[in-house]
Design a protein around this nucleic acid. Structure first.
Lengths: 336, 336
DNA sequence: TTGAAAGCGCTACCAG
DNA sequence: CTGGTAGCGCTTTCAA
């Protein structure tokens, strides 16, 4: 690989000059520019980004920490970050494979070693305390899909509680009276809050949700199928189901129809997330839109601002997002 | 950020010693190790990966170049590469946003600047010639989903022609006689080859496929819907459709059912790719499995081997993959 | 077993 | 407008 020295030598100028044309530096003669540019092309010279980063003390990489790339939800998240990276001419550095607090920590450490000081992190396993410390060390760290009060101005999150309420209001407005829920068995806040919001709103309407009518399962197509079978087996009656996510909801619809129930005429099904899948299912899934991509973009922009020179950091800012109801075909009015 | 010098100074040793314990270097006393390790912890020291890369002349990053992250197909591809990256304790560097030959070139250049010498590239726009040159410059560059004879040992690709044949054989075996095709309007080889293989095999069975029965559209749900409407509007009869990809196939099913046709009893629909979607559709989609993830892992491993010290490069190797028929519910026997 | 020092490729400062 | 040069944080000889 040709280096800056090679270029300088062959062009008959100093490395300083080469560096100047490389960076569109001030005060370089047209002649030098032309000359050096030609030699760079001839030599097929590519500047060494590591060396540049070393001396300038700044990285041109934007880090993302997510559990997984195949989950379309996280793919959208990464995509959001990627879009702002491109706009800022930065490169995406991806850390995935998060299964434990330890691996989440590793992922972040790797980014730090690469001097990546701007990062969007999706962490579910690391404790609040650890994350707060980390935020202290890395000024450009922004959390997504998580809310920690002490660093609220660096959290971009979705109001899951409100999501549950919106779901309940929608179903209630459709005249439904008897409900079931399918939730995720994973020990994170999201499913708990969604159910809680759902129940709160039902209670306001004097409707009760028996705990036997809440099923827990893996947040996948199959998890939804199994949960629905259990619900059906219980013999309890219900005309609407609020489901933890779209994959489970599609599984639920599938099982329901296999058992002779029509969706939505017999039973309405409401999902959560609004991933690509929901537009492809039949009937098309009514769901709550989780604007991940948009949120990811916001998170990336905040991270960028945080590390900007003259950043005015407003600690009172709030980046809460409210899911939006997307009415498609899987929920409908229940005649009395 | 604490540097190696800080650690050395506070630990009362030379930077050389610190470096040695950092790299588990030979001949360091237990005492020094303990001492230095403690200071590193106290100072919250993190080595600078850029500086290391600069002096060792090797990167610990694995590059991936794909058009897009939200397309589940490419997400799987990235996921495959990511898995081998993790195994090798390397970091993923992602370049996306490919819409033209120019941006594809940019993406690759960015990786080179970062001294990333191992990369898996999915390029559709760059010419064979350019890619061959690039391969000459970057020893660890492997192409995926593309075949170029001159660098065949660095291409991991799918036999689309054979895929079309397999599709035809499957449908023929189910007793179908009259066919339609839905293809992608994009000017790349894949759709052309799939149709060609399909037609070749039909011809062997003395079945003709009228060109009016081949519709082209965007490779999306909607593209599939529109193409199917056109097919239906033509008034031509057919009992089976071979579709370019799963998204289009699901769109086709949707339109077919909206028009009173049952899938598969009236019309069989066969997709291509076997993305997540296909398992979630109703009826579940019969399709041809495109083992992207596996292929991506293979590509990454080849790239790694290519750059290994004592690599024995066998230029006669062939990395062709054959799609595998996945029989689900959208294709069925056609009674005579 | 340790330390001193050269230098990786580049930027940025200071002279001229 | 240009060149010389220090030094970014680290690894790696070479001597001690």
């Amino acid at each position: 690989m040709a280096t800056i020295k090679d270029v300088a030598r062959i062009a008959g100028v100093s490395v300083a000059s080469v560096s100047r044309v490389l960076n569109n530096g001030p005060k370089v003669s047209q002649k030098t520019i032309a000359n050096v540019t030609k030699v760079m092309k001839d030599l097929n010279y590519t500047p060494n980004a590591n060396a540049r980063a070393l001396v300038t003390q700044k990285s041109t990489t934007l880090g993302v920490v997510i559990p997984d790339l195949v989950d379309p939800f996280f793919a959208s998240l990464a995509h959001g970050v990627e879009q702002v990276a491109r706009k800022k001419k930065m490169q995406l550095l991806l850390s995935t494979g998060l299964v434990s607090a330890e691996t989440e920590m590793q992922a972040i450490t790797l980014l730090i070693e690469r001097q990546c000081d701007v990062m969007v992190v999706h962490s579910k396993k690391l404790s609040d305390q650890v994350l707060i410390e980390l935020a202290g060390k890395v000024p450009g760290l922004v959390l997504i899909d998580r809310y920690i009060e002490e660093i609220a101005h660096r959290c971009v999150w979705l109001d899951n509680l409100e999501g549950g309420k919106i779901a309940a209001r929608h179903l209630l407005a459709l005249n439904h009276q008897s409900f079931a829920c399918i939730s995720s068995k994973h020990q994170i806040d999201d499913p708990r809050l969604r159910i809680e919001g759902f129940q709160q709103e039902l209670k306001s309407a004097n409707v009760n949700l028996a705990s036997e009518l809440i099923e827990f399962g893996e947040p996948t197509l199959q998890g939804g199928e199994i949960a629905t079978q259990n619900l059906l087996a219980s013999g309890k009656k219900f005309t609407a189901i609020f489901v933890y996510n779209d994959a489970m909801a599609i599984g639920a619809i599938s099982t329901l129809e296999d058992n002779g129930f029509k969706v939505p005429s017999d039973i309405s099904v409401l999902g959560f997330d609004d991933v690509l899948l929901s537009r492809y299912s039949r009937p098309k899934l009514s769901t709550l839109n989780y604007p991940v991509e948009e949120m990811a973009m916001q998170a990336a922009n905040i991270a960028l601002e945080l590390t900007a020179k003259h950043a005015e950091i407003n600690e009172s800012k709030n980046y809460k997002h409210i899911p939006r109801l997307v009415k498609r075909e899987s929920t409908s009015f229940k005649p009395s």
